[in-house]
Design a protein around this nucleic acid. Structure first.
Lengths: 172, 172
DNA sequence: AACAATTGTTGTCGTCAACAACAATATTTC
DNA sequence: GAAATATTGTTGTTGACGACAACAATTGTT
């Protein structure tokens, strides 16, 4: 069935217990000893989670000066590329709940980056647009985002980054 | 400087506004029209985030019968591979806070999968061990996790999965 | 012995996803 | 056209999660 899926590991005590013998300089304590992970290697989900944490932290750090977080950036990007979209459409596009988008837009509207315009074709919905300030800001954000992307390339290699984007293109 | 970083996009209204003309069957409404994303493609963080969401949902769904979530699985795996580890060591290994690990272990201990044993070398810390039940359960969890991993391979291709694991090996 | 550091624990805060409920409006059905 | 149904934006609640701060017990350092 499984080529080599279920590893027979599970029995690999790394002896992180009675290792305190030594003598003079106990240079590293128990926690610093390398912890074997066995069952964790080979799990795509774990690697992806750790990578996602790193990549988000770098994005936030790189765009800290303009105080834009990944979700805000994605919202601005979609609105900038498709002016007039409704909140439902943006939410569905980005896979976030419309309830959550409300607060995001509140924040962006307070910062004069986005406007909610009453749609005349459907008086329930709002047509979303970037303000002039929003468009100018987004251009700056995109420059910083490109710098962040360069950090990613440095971290995993440019070729690997390209390959990764190709592998995950279906999820974009 | 930037090879092709900052795309000059930002101006691509997809005309999702006055499109309601038609006549009889208005088969798809605004939201169903394909939304161009422009600025979002080429961003590794976004693709990784979406993939991570998918992969976690599949993991949770695949292990729903045994009610084990990714974080719990990772904790059990690390303890199973390194019996006797302290909570600090496990937390540091998995990149989670020791405060959070407390609750995770409470839950796992309630389910008789893990035991906190008083360490004799350091009376502050607990040596973590799987119970007999815990070891047997973990073996089952690993089988289900392998099935989940097969889902990943079906989704992105087995070769791509291998390559992705290699690219992200540094984060494991 | 006095001081500082570590471990497990508890608690708070802010972010986020998943729901449920609601008023206003649009669409469908009779 | 009126009644039933669905959708949109909004508000609120819940639970998972990361980041902190504070604390008692214990260990390490000076």
């Amino acid at each position: 069935m499984s080529s080599r899926a279920a590893q027979p590991a599970l029995k690999t005590p790394v002896s992180a217990n009675g290792k305190r013998g030594g003598n003079g300089k106990a240079r590293h304590r128990e926690q610093d000893i390398e912890v074997g992970l066995d069952g964790l290697v080979g799990h795509a989900g774990y690697a992806v989670r750790r990578f996602q944490i790193w990549i988000f932290q770098d994005f936030i750090r790189t765009l800290a000066a303009v105080d834009i977080k990944p979700t805000q950036y994605s919202v601005l990007t979609v609105i900038g590329a498709n002016p007039g979209l409704s909140q439902m459409a943006v939410a569905k596009r980005l896979g976030i709940e419309r309830a959550r988008l409300v607060h995001l837009l509140d924040s962006l509207e307070d910062r004069k980056l986005v406007r909610r315009v009453q749609s005349r074709t459907d008086r329930r919905s709002h047509a979303l647009h970037l303000t002039g300030r929003g468009e100018a800001s987004l251009r700056q954000f995109m420059l910083l985002a490109a710098e962040h992307e360069r950090h990613v390339a440095e971290k995993i290699g440019a070729a690997n980054r390209e390959h990764l984007l190709r592998i995950l293109a279906a999820f974009t």
